[in-house]
């Protein structure tokens, strides 16, 4: 009996470890080879150096793409958080229209991304050719598109929290003479802060990760995703991408660790 449970434990560990290795092996190799200047992985390592990192910071196109990624990500996540929170509050108080609005807000979430991307592109064509509103594809259009795509996720993250709120608090505030607007800002908004932050984080990562919408609506504006994709398709490899991947992976890792430490502390202090 004991042998059987031990065997099952070993098998279960093995499943986890094998899949973890498959997931992390490519990333680990990239990190290791980011300190080597060789063109391809696997062969000779050459000497340890930070050359790829200096090359990365000197690569103007890649730096521009990184800057674009951050500008689009931060701006659209900020706009999506404001728009999403405000409309989540509005939707929360709706009665008849609610179902329609909920469905409408989920269209871009369930739709195939390529169709969403082409929809934006056709809107651009339509505005240019039929409505004669002329503008260029690029940063502004991408910020707009990313805001539209990520707002539903902010709503999805804020709405459940709104349902948990105690409505008496808001009423108490208004009974005590605060205007509805003031009650919303000083009583409701602070209680939504957590959900807004996770909505912002979700919107930001979705924007950073986006490829299809950005590729089709970017014109000559490239983000990390589209620049790296196009460069590798054209010329095979770009060694300094290894340095960029390493930096991004480390940032993700640190953020995840910090977030979890804070979460655990909160849980512990709540349990006390």
């Amino acid at each position: 009996m004991k042998n059987k449970t031990l065997l099952s434990l070993v098998i279960r560990w093995a499943i986890l470890v094998i899949v973890l290795i498959a997931i992390y092996l490519p990333i680990a190799l990239i990190v290791v080879y980011s300190f080597s200047e060789v063109r391809d992985l696997g062969g000779e390592y050459g000497s340890f150096s930070f050359n790829l990192y200096t090359k990365l910071f000197k690569n103007k196109e890649l730096m521009q793409a990184t800057a674009n990624t951050l500008i689009i990500g931060l701006t659209s996540a900020f706009l999506a958080t404001v728009l999403g929170t405000v409309s989540a509050i509005g939707i929360h108080y709706m009665t008849k229209m609610r179902k329609t609005v909920d469905t409408a807000s989920q269209i871009t979430v369930v739709n195939a991304e390529i169709v969403t991307a082409m929809g934006f592109y056709l809107l651009f064509i339509f505005m240019r050719d039929v409505l004669k509103i002329s503008f260029n594809l690029g940063l502004g259009w991408l910020i707009l598109a990313h805001t539209v795509i990520t707002t539903p996720y902010v709503i999805l993250s804020v709405s459940p929290r709104l349902k948990q709120l105690n409505p008496n608090l808001l009423e108490a505030s208004m009974d005590l003479g605060a205007s509805p607007m003031r009650s919303l800002i000083t009583v409701m908004l602070p209680q939504l802060a957590g959900a807004m932050i996770s909505g912002f984080a979700l919107a930001f990562t979705l924007s950073l990760d986006d490829f299809v919408v950005t590729s089709i609506n970017g014109g000559n504006t490239y983000t990390i995703s589209t620049f790296v994709y196009n460069h590798i398709r054209r010329s095979g490899v770009l060694p300094e991408v290894r340095a960029l991947s390493t930096i991004i992976f480390l940032v993700v890792l640190i953020v995840m660790i910090v977030v979890n430490v804070i979460k655990n502390r909160k849980l512990k202090s709540e349990n006390k």
Binding site: L83, V86, A104, S105, I107
Partner: peptide
């Protein structure tokens, strides 16, 4: 009763112009 349903209107306008209209165009 305080019912700020109008708060959803800006988003509805955005959805109409940037989600519904593109699908109609497709």
């Amino acid at each position: 009763v305080f019912r700020p349903t109008a708060f959803a209107f800006p988003y509805l306008a955005v959805t109409l112009v940037f989600v519904i209209v593109p699908l109609i165009l497709v």
